[in-house]
């Protein structure tokens, strides 16, 4: 009876997982297929589902004619920089707000949230003026700092909610052991909050990876572009023609680093509170 139930559960799970995978992956697979189709087949109507002939022409075009390696490098640099900066700034603040019983915690938290309430488009012009006045055009910092700042409210709030769940006796024990507050944050709170950190890191990283508006405005030298701006330079030979094949190839190439980062970070999500030293 019990084993029978287990089997049905198992099957149900497999079906669900299969559903999830196809839901998430189908459009991406479509990109893969499009990227290896010869140009004519890409725009045929009705669309051919499987390519009749496999061609790597699009990949060659994207890599040979465009400095795609540079763009990926820039994107990784910018996204990593922004993620680290946002976490480095956000984690201490979240810790102080969650654990140090500051006066005005509620107000400060809300003030930080207010920073997230404006559409991004508002920042473009003032930031452009700053970037241009400071001579930061084409400098990765012109993207790293704004991306981090735009994500800091999110980082603080999510870390705040996790830090609050860390049992207080842990901290007290550490204080008795002579840890400083910074020591407690780095040595105890952060390791225990690995799932929250990994989650936040992934989400901030992807935001920075995909951002177009600022990157387009602040990066004018071709070698300084990030991936989304690079994709915008792909051309079908006329403003009205969309180079589907090349865009698909570019997407396939540029999704890989993201998948690798996610795979590396998501392992952390299962650790933390449930694994390791602490039990709730």
């Amino acid at each position: 009876m019990n084993s029978h139930k287990k089997t049905t559960n198992r099957i149900l799970l497999i079906v669900l997982v299969a559903l999830i995978i196809s839901y998430s992956l189908a459009p991406f697979l479509w990109q893969v297929l499009t990227s290896i189709k010869p140009e004519k087949e890409v725009i045929s109507i009705p669309p051919t589902y499987l390519p009749t002939k496999v061609s790597f022409e699009n990949y060659k075009k994207v890599f040979m004619e465009k400095p795609f390696g540079w763009w990926i490098f820039n994107s990784v640099l910018v996204a990593m920089g922004a993620t680290l900066l946002a976490l480095a700034a956000g984690a201490p603040a979240a810790y102080a707000l969650a654990r140090l019983r500051l006066r005005g915690t509620g107000v400060i938290l809300k003030l930080i949230l207010v920073g997230a309430l404006f559409p991004q488009i508002v920042y473009l012009l003032p930031l452009f003026e700053m970037v241009s006045a400071l001579g930061l055009m084409n400098n990765p910092l012109a993207l790293i700092i704004p991306y981090a700042a735009l994500n800091v409210p999110f980082v603080v709030w999510i870390l705040y909610s996790f830090f609050r769940q860390v049992p207080g006796d842990l901290e007290d024990a550490a204080l008795v052991d002579g840890f400083s507050r910074t020591g407690i944050l780095v040595k105890i709170i952060l390791p225990v909050s690995a799932p929250a950190l990994a989650t936040t890191a992934i989400l901030v990283f992807i935001f920075a990876w995909n951002e177009f508006l600022f990157a387009f405005a602040f990066m004018s030298r071709k070698l300084a572009y990030t991936v989304p701006v690079g994709i915008a330079t792909l051309s079908g030979g006329s403003p009205y023609v969309i180079p589907w094949g090349q865009i698909a190839a570019a997407i396939v190439i540029t999704t890989m680093p993201v998948v690798i980062i996610i795979l590396a970070l998501q392992r952390r999500i299962v650790q933390g509170l449930t694994a390791g030293s602490v039990k709730g």
């Binding site: 998430s24 991406f28 991936v227 997407i251 999704t255 998948v259 998501q266």
Partner: peptide
């Protein structure tokens, strides 16, 4: 990782 792919694809594209 697969579940996160839609979030990782550039929105304009």
């Amino acid at each position: 990782a697969i579940v996160l792919i839609p979030w990782a694809l550039p929105p304009a594209v």
